[in-house]
Write a protein that binds this DNA or RNA. Structure first.
Lengths: 347, 347
DNA sequence: CTGAAAGCGCTTACAG
DNA sequence: CTGAAAGCGCTTACAG
């Protein structure tokens, strides 16, 4: 017969409470879970003891029975901090954290290189450590989605789109926003507008290109490949690309630039200044992201603010529905961005 | 006799594997944990089946026995995203996530208002969901530290200091950095240097004030309270404070400003520009944080880069030692910052 | 080298 | 209304 003696240990168990209250563990459990079938007197007595002892039921023991972790994984490849330089990740994570907490879920951050991150994600899901996955950092061709789908792990993608009906995602109007900016510039009289776009591996950049093209077409302007470039979300790239554009023969030079991000736009700004030209008089520039720096550049950047907070909330709601086994309808959502007009775009 | 039939269910258990392999669960467990006492042949047979079935031991069942979660909580009050506007949180979280992952630990993000965050932290610890806590967001007088101490939950503070020997923390040289900047300005000939400091509730800001004062004293300059102010990490505050400073009688006006952050410094910059004065010719300015925006202001900001990545790593190592019950020696660490000299500070 | 059994800390039918 | 017992999916002495 094993000697049970928990009296001097720190971690209390339900049996310790039961013993202190002079009842069975089952009764304590019912009180713990606010279940009926316990007399008011017993309930209050047990509650007092729980309170006094500061007892909390072991999460793991509960999860073992519930077969749920009430945790969701947020995957971020370490290059994400670079990618999302600026307020994007903090804002998104904050919103997701709040939404999750209010539903009683916990946020597990899964970071690492692309490979590591995918491996960890799959493992944590297989071990039952996470009930679902949020993917705010997907690039075109990433096979993690297929693997997650295959294992039937509830997943919601943020800021990326997928053709398949069974893939849930929430994104914002990259295309409309880029089209809006382009159209705005055209209406101001610009005829040669360059697009200094972000990396090809982001769907968002494709959409921005699409928006740019559709605005040109709408307004009867030709699409000129020489005015479109693709590169990283870095100031250097913006700087160098702008230098190249300014080296074109006068008649081919753009009079406006739609940049793929505020950081890129800040680089463009620097190149214009270095060429002793003025923004927006000689070259109008727009950014993307509403990065904190966009208010501090000279001139301040006209830019696009994505509805990050809302995207986070919506993604969480979708994911929790999925986890609960509810049918998602619709399986995807596109939210509007805000255009923030400052002086860099001229008037 | 209960009918055990897991054949058509998704989640495999160790018993399913045992049955498939024609062995007992104990033997499968030994293989799973790379324990000796299993013949090579049996081991390989079982491994093949585990592989083929894609079986993973339930994390919760294991944790229940191990009495460890292998997760640590990172507490962030939602105002943190505001506070750490810029690269601080992402960089710190990235570094912490990587360090943790390489030790086999998982990162749980605990967000919410100050109250909520503290409550959640204590609860998750009491439930055994987290083995330790990382606090990168502590203000002076926060009682969460005492509560964590009381519950004997392993804790490491980042970017804040505590007098008590039993509290573990890692911070950087806020004082030395502020002193360095102040001294540098004095050596350039400045005699009236203002300190536009951050909020009082941050220990870091106290330290920066101390550094500023000690540099003045060292160089034989008087400390003038009228040149020192305290306020939020916001551009507006920098702007307005600078306006006030510029409204002082000519002989009392500062010729240099040490700002509490890059955002504040950017505001100062704006006010100087609005007064039709030049930086650094009329007023030299320094920032703090090496925020991305510091390269894009005009002129670019001289600033201080904190060793965030290293701080994150060190904090993780300390915490894991604490969790393992090792004696921490020393219990605190102060790492050096880098001074990044750009043009805003003059020469 | 292998298996049967007890136990981790809970919850939940099932009796009474 | 309450308790005894079985079970969640593992691990770990203890036998053999």
């Amino acid at each position: 017969m094993p000697v049970v003696s928990n009296h001097h240990n720190k971690k209390l168990t339900i049996h310790d409470i039961a013993e202190l209250a002079g009842v069975s563990a089952g009764t304590v459990s019912r009180v713990l879970n606010n279940q009926p079938g316990v007399s008011v007197k017993t309930r209050e007595h047990i509650q007092a003891i729980i309170q006094q002892q500061g007892y909390r039921a072991s999460f793991f023991a509960r999860s073992l029975l519930a077969r749920q972790s009430f945790a969701i994984g947020l995957a971020l490849s370490s290059t994400a901090s670079e990618l999302f330089a600026g307020p994007i990740v903090p804002e998104l994570v904050g919103s997701i954290g709040d939404a999750l907490a209010s539903e009683g879920y916990t946020l597990t951050l899964i970071t690492g290189s692309h490979e590591q991150r995918n491996q960890r994600l799959l493992r944590e899901a297989a071990e039952g450590k996470i009930d679902g996955v949020l993917l705010p950092d997907i690039r075109i061709g990433d096979d993690i989605i297929d693997k997650l789908l295959e294992q039937e792990i509830p997943t919601v993608i943020i800021g990326h789109r997928d053709e398949r009906k069974e893939v849930a995602w929430v994104d914002c109007e990259h295309d409309c926003s880029a089209a809006y900016l382009t159209r705005m510039l055209i209406k101001q009289g610009h005829r040669r507008i360059a697009l200094v776009n972000g990396p090809e591996e982001f769907y968002a950049c494709h959409l921005r290109l699409e928006g740019y093209r559709s605005a040109l077409q709408e307004e009867g302007l030709d699409y000129n490949m020489d005015l479109v470039s693709v590169g990283p979300f870095k100031a250097d790239y913006g700087y160098q690309t702008t230098q190249k554009l300014l080296a074109l023969p006068r008649v081919e030079q753009p009079t406006a630039i739609v940049a793929g991000s505020d950081i890129i736009a800040a680089g463009c700004l620097g190149a214009v200044k270095a060429a002793n030209m003025q923004v927006p008089a000689d070259l109008a520039i727009t950014g993307f992201d509403d990065n904190i720096l966009s208010t501090f550049t000279h001139p301040p950047l006209t830019t696009v603010k994505m509805p990050l907070e809302q995207m986070g909330k919506v993604a969480v709601n979708m994911l929790i529905s999925l986890i609960k086994g509810e049918k998602l309808e619709p399986t995807s959502l596109i939210l509007p961005c805000s255009i923030i007009v400052r002086t860099s775009s001229g008037s």
